[in-house]
Amino acid sequence: MLKVVRSALADIGRGLRMRNVWMALAHEDIGDQHKRTTLGPVWLLINYLAYAGTFVVIFGDNRSVPHFAAYVATGLFVWLYLMEVLTQSVTLFTREESFIKGTTLPLTVYVMRMTMQSVIRAGYALVGCLAILLLVGTSVTVDWIWSGLALCLIVVATPAAILVLAVAGAFFPDLGFIVQNLMRIGMFLTPVFWTGPGHGIRGEFYRWNPFTYFLEIVRLPVINAEVPIAAFGICATIILLLWVLAALLLGGYRKKIVFAL
């Protein structure tokens, strides 16, 4: 067990020291994706605004949800980030196969490259989210700091989630489609545009869905000026467990992945 953890920490340590590599590659990735377009990465902002705007316009007369526009803008922002990270991570090592089989770069480099890429993309969406919040007159309070802290927590969770799914996806390729479907359905089972806790089946989904709490820690300080201590606690526990699982998987499988691809 100790050997496994030590092996994982060695990989993570080397990966973090090679931050020049993953930061450069992530920036290139973002640039490449929009190289031939006129607006470049601004499309990421437009994509978010179009998505959130459509929701607000179509479902905007939803009187059961106070501050609906702000509610959806923050909910969608977090949800789209989580959805992108989780669906993309399953195939991460398959996409990096030639590098894994041709270099001795630690696996953490690929994980951090993807984390960095997702954070940059989310940065553009965040601009759109803030724009909507200000447009609909959401008052800026000191509680927003808690939302900032919540976003940092989500970023901390990202490499762990990527690692777990990437290792699992290397050995179980069908996981990609399973996660894709779950995330599509998950958008409706998570309070992205409906409020909880409520009663019946919706209430159960609100309570038992871990994504709920990741949305609430970002959203509640902004909309209700309240600090959801319990949700923060649940998220911190989930992140801790995720990192333990990620370290065990990385330490145990990092030298076996090259044979599984």
């Binding site: 179980f172 069908d174 076996k256 044979f259």
Partner: peptide, 11 residues
């Protein structure tokens, strides 16, 4: 030596 993994797949 490495195991020839029977990939866990539905395909």
């Amino acid at each position: 030596a490495y195991r020839v993994r029977q990939k866990l797949t539905l395909a």
